[in-house]
Design a protein around this nucleic acid. Sequence first.
RNA 1: GGCCCGUUCGUCUAGCGGUUAGGACUCCGGCCUCUCACGCCGGCAACAGGGGUUCGAGUCCCCUACGGGUCACCA
Length: 460
Amino acid sequence: MTITRFAPSPTGYLHIGGLRTALYSYLWARKNSGKFLLRIEDTDQKRNSFEAMEAIKQVFDWVGLEYDGDVYYQSKRFDLYKKYIDQLLNEGKAYKCYMSKEELTALREEQMANKQRAKYDGRYRDFEGTPPQGIEPVIRIKAPQNTIIEFEDGIKGKVSFNTDDILDDFIIARSDGTPTYNFVVAIDDALMGLTDVIRGDDHLSNTPKQIIVYQALGFDIPKFYHVPMILNPQGKKLSKRDGAMDAMDYKTLGYFPEALLNFLVRLGWSHGDQEVFSMQEMLELFDPKDINKSASAYNGEKLLWLNSNYMKTLSYERIIDDLKDLELDISAHPKKELLIDSHRERAKTLVELKTQIESIINKPREYDAKAVKKFLKGEWKEILTKFLEILKQNSPENSQDFEEMTVKFMEENDIKLGKLAQPIRIAITGSSVSPSVYDTMAIIGKDELVSRIENLLGTF
RNA sequence: GGCCCGUUCGUCUAGCGGUUAGGACUCCGGCCUCUCACGCCGGCAACAGGGGUUCGAGUCCCCUACGGGUCACCA
């Protein structure tokens, strides 16, 4: 069975890079009817993992990612790690190192000064004598020396390191007894039964360390997939300056979770020429082997385009619900479906949709000066007054009624639509931009239309 | 600096030894049209550079350049 995991360290919010690796892990597990687990890397007690946990849950909930079983907290598993530390100690695969922090720093500085790689010198590796007094030792693992560590990465292909180049007897437990990252990750991944570890490629160089732990403990080594980073539009490292980092911000900005996920899955992964993927299609088609080797730049335009695509196809219920989250409730509006249909092709985000809808359902607070200057000229007043009279004599209900009435009026008076439509549009919205006038007239209804036309006539 | 990874239009990408190097976003034209959009049609635009291997290289190998990651008693 395929078992994957998402293992964030609690930093406060879930950023889009994290969401993407979570998505990849999720898709791969679900596609293979496996399990997708969530583990919180909170061995560093200083951080508040509660808020971070809530943030992650909030995002998962919004986009619809579900993890299996309970959340694993590393902070609750210290006894377990202790057991393995003792085991390695007893087997002679790890040892106590009595070098103080100061000594270690001094050694490192000396090595740096000589332009050498900072590296523990192994002085306690085979220490037999009496340990110095007053020093709480750290535990170091006996790492293999001058050995090639090689593994087949599911994305990068064969990756190999020489142990002498990259590591020393690294610390697996601090002097206060708490275990360190590379040690606990290996243990947890093994104990949780991970078959496929999908993570950011910033972890690529941690992998040999973890492999050493797997080997020392006799665990099976999972398949690794190191996914490249997401860069900002300039091709540099993504930072807060580049806008929305927190996945949850996208909700506030009016994006659909479908669009965000679609955008993220396509960033670094593809399936031929296909651009739009439903969750169902992602589940059918996703395979981590198709993930690109190189980093990809964030492209907000494409996200917008994707979002506008979903805007065109999502159900009324969905859009009405999502608008409620943006504090616009049109669920009781008699023409709510027309309201959505007449705007969905004009709005790229829910925020835009909200603004546009409000510009119809609310009376204009002011009239756009440019529109007034451009369209309220010539005989507009006479035409509009005449139209108002006709309007009062009729009882149009829907767009078609309004259209028929208007067309008839234009024919009888030999007026072109342009002369009439723009003043009406200004009367309704205060601007010269809106959906079809017939739709907007139908949305607000006859009485409101009369009132708005009278307002315009009274203002100029 | 050591080690590791990467490099196809501005961006996301297809390509898996023989292609007029394809698609998408953006941008620019045109059509549609009551405005704005949508839609449709068309256009601009790429194999980092240099050596090999091969009848033939975007595809395989090497070097260079340029990016990125990582080198903690952080994760």
